[in-house]
Amino acid sequence: MSDKCNLIKDILPLYVEDMVSSDTREFVSEHLQYCAECHAEFERMRKATKFIPDADPDIDIVPLKRVKRDLFIKRLQTICFTAILACAIATIIFGILTSPKFFPYSDNLLNVIDVPDGSVIITFDSEVTGYSCNEVFDNETETAIYRINAWTTTWDLHLSNRGKQNMVIPFDRETEIQIFYAQNDGSEDVLIYGPNQNTEENGVTLPRLILMPYFLLAFLALVVLAILRMLLRNKQAIIVWIDRAIPFPISYMAAQLCTKGFNFTTYSSQRDFCIIILVAMLLYFTMLTGKSLYKAKLNTSKGIEE
């Protein structure tokens, strides 16, 4: 009995139940046309009305169990690959749609209200769907300095309705406060509340550049892993772990390019970095699952050819 006949007999139970792919069905059908022994086994299986392993001791169900197990694992991997890839794409789209678009300062963008009870209320224009506020204390002038900004997103404009945005800044009247509006476009911050001291030094809120170092670090890690793989190509135990590690720097760089493009500056570093890490993890598991499916397909094709 040839190895091909052994392979055909392993597949026959699934072939009879129509649980194989079209390519495998064509391969088995072609073999059955000229192999009398396999065709007889096929006819015996097809005529059987009920499969009872204990009734026929000559039937070996181990190959059937192995094939069914491999088929189940392959289907499970395919489902996982599709689900993770879909989540990665959805996260990329969500990250792009929720990317902040900062408003430059204008007289009708916000209104500052000095409340007698000891607070400052800032009401924003209806186009504003989000804001942030950073506080620092200047020990030299004993002044609390607030820098606020306002933004909207494509998601908020079309898919969300947050209502009019307001914020309250507590003010105990015992210390001076200054409130600046940070335009986040390279322009000078605008003083919107507080004494006009040192307004010629309002400063400019600059974007953070943390994304560039992380991208370069991922690229460096990829280069180092590639070199190690080449140097240690004869040590299979180490190669396995290197092959598992290589996709992560690739995933991180792909995630950053998908969400931020070639723009490595950010005014919302924490949010952007979290989105990039989430997308990178999803892409990483997608690559591992896809690689496993590809190997399984190669092994199946090799077994059929033999």
Rank of each mutant, 00 (worst) to 15 (best):
K260S: 06
R208T: 07
Q178I: 03
F264C: 05
I121K: 15
I177E: 07
I242F: 15
D172S: 10
G163C: 09
F103C: 05
D114T: 12
N108R: 11
K74M: 02
E41M: 09
P247E: 08
Q183Y: 04
Q197Y: 11
E201A: 13
I304G: 00
L217F: 12
I73E: 00
F42W: 12
N134G: 09
Q183V: 08
L110Q: 04
E37H: 11
I148C: 04
S99V: 00
P63R: 03
A255C: 04
R271N: 07
W151K: 02
L231Y: 03
L85W: 00
L220H: 01
F81Y: 09
L225K: 00
R208G: 13
D56C: 09
K164G: 07
F72A: 14
A40T: 14
C274N: 15
N263Q: 12
P170Q: 09
N161H: 09
I113Q: 15
V20I: 13
F219E: 01
K4C: 10
R208A: 10
A150T: 01
I73K: 07
N184D: 05
E43P: 00
S21K: 04
V204W: 07
D107I: 06
I192V: 14
I304K: 15
E174V: 05
P249C: 03
T49I: 00
T98E: 06
S301H: 10
S106R: 14
T205N: 10
C274G: 12
E26Q: 15
I59V: 14
N234V: 02
S187D: 14
R208K: 11
S106C: 05
D243Q: 13
Y193P: 00
S301R: 15
M167C: 11
I275T: 10
E200F: 11
T153S: 09
F72D: 04
L206K: 14
Q178T: 02
Y193R: 07
S21H: 02
I89W: 00
D60A: 02
Q256P: 02
T266Q: 02
D114Q: 14
D172W: 00
T266S: 15
T143C: 12
D172I: 04
A55L: 12
C133Y: 06
S2A: 12
R66F: 04
E127D: 15
L12V: 04
E26N: 14
L211H: 10
M253V: 02
L278S: 15
A36D: 14
M287E: 09
K260Y: 01
G261S: 06
P170T: 06
A296I: 00
E17S: 10
P116C: 05
L225I: 10
L12N: 01
V28G: 07
E142F: 12
T286W: 00
D272S: 13
A144T: 15
L228P: 02
R162C: 03
T141Q: 13
L293T: 01
A150M: 09
C87D: 03
L7C: 08
L288K: 10
A218G: 03
E37N: 12
V204H: 01
L278Q: 11
F171A: 09
S251H: 06
K68I: 03
Y105E: 04
D10I: 01
I238P: 02
A226N: 01
S268G: 01
D189Q: 11
D23R: 11
L222G: 07
